Computed example of a mutant assay.
Amino acid sequence: MSKLTKIVIPVAGLGTRVLPASKAIPKEMLTVVDKPVIQHVVEEAVGAGFTEIILITRSSKQAIEDHFDVHYELETELERKGKDSILNDVKGILPAGVSISSVRQGRALGLGHAVLCAAPLVGNEPFAVMLPDMLIHNPSNGSQDLAAMVKDFNETGAAQIMVEAVPEEHVERYGVVDCDGKPLNAGQGQPIIGMVEKPPRDKAPSNQAIVGRYILPARVMELLKDTKPGAGNEIQLTDALDALIKEAPMRAYSMVGKTYDCGNKLGFVQANMAFAMSHPDLGEDFIAFIKEAIA
């Protein structure tokens, strides 16, 4: 089995749920505390061992690529002024040994189509998919959950889907996995026998909702080529996974951390608060501010 090094991150969305903030700035470049959302996501990927980042992008998203590029003038000026700490932060945005490439998605035809755009760069290798809207907060180790999925994939060879336990009254908002009634506790994995999109509460097979982290075999690309438009008249990744599960094993991994959906305004504000409270430099003062504000 090929080594797992490639991760696909679709960033071609318009960010309509966070307008007007995303009118001139890609939603992925909105800042959570002191880093753009996309940098948090890339750091999670790198922390889990991925070294080849593939962005699925579109026109007007050049700022994302610029953020990970070298800025010689800025680095020279910071060095001249002796601002070594800030200089190290800037140089560390893309660690040594990690590459970023991008592919344009000319038309917005769904998540499955976005992933398929990466097929020429993925080739015949397994790969991961991360949705940048979803930030995972785990103060002890931000990459712990993705790294655990990688470990399970390497040991079992089974495709992986990250899930998060949600209140049963909210299952109808999510895609939900069916693990044949087997218990799935945080930090554990179980085989998947099916998936249901936004099921009624009384028909949901579990309360484990799909949260936007996948590890997949190269076979998925072939399945996506044959996937017909589904919900919203778009090519859905879920439809290709439904086909995959009929011919290969797939496992759900229940995450330890907590997700924040930065694709909507409330989730974005919540993410800023969660990441600020655990920030090594700002956390203590921010917590004191919150306590004072709600007193």
Rank of each mutant, 00 (worst) to 15 (best):
E247P: 10
L216G: 07
P217D: 14
Y214T: 00
Q208G: 02
I245G: 02
E222Y: 04
E247A: 06
D226Q: 13
K225N: 15
K246G: 01
Y260G: 00
S254D: 13
A252E: 12
E247V: 10
N233Q: 11
P249S: 05
R213T: 03
L224A: 07
D226E: 14
Y214L: 09
Q236W: 03
T227V: 07
R219Q: 12
M250L: 13
L244T: 15
P217I: 11
A231F: 12
C262K: 07
P249E: 10
I210K: 04
Q236L: 13
Q208D: 02
A248G: 03
K246M: 10
G212W: 05
L216R: 01
Y253I: 04
Y260W: 03
T227Q: 12
A240I: 00
Y253W: 08
A209F: 02
K228S: 15
R219C: 06
P217F: 04
D261I: 03
L223P: 05
D242H: 10
A243E: 14
A243D: 10
I235A: 11
A252S: 08
L224F: 08
V211T: 08
N233K: 09
M221I: 15
R219N: 02
A248D: 10
N207K: 14
A252L: 06
L244A: 08
N207F: 00
G257Y: 01
N233H: 11
D226R: 13
M250I: 12
G257R: 00
N207I: 13
Y214A: 07
N207S: 10
L223Q: 00
M250E: 15
D226T: 14
M255V: 15
E222W: 01
A252N: 11
G232N: 06
E234V: 03
D239L: 04
P229Q: 02
V256N: 09
M255E: 13
Y260E: 00
D239R: 07
D226L: 15
M255P: 13
Y260Q: 07
D261P: 03
K246S: 03
K225S: 11
S254T: 14
R219Y: 04
K258T: 10
A218C: 07
A209N: 00
D242E: 12
E234Y: 03
A218S: 14
L216V: 08
S254R: 15
A218T: 10
V211S: 12
R219E: 14
A252D: 06
I215A: 04
A209C: 07
M250Y: 11
T259H: 01
I210Y: 02
R251H: 11
V256L: 15
A252P: 09
I245E: 01
L241G: 01
R251S: 07
R251W: 07
T227G: 08
I210W: 03
N207A: 08
K228W: 04
T259M: 12
V220D: 01
D242N: 14
Q236N: 14
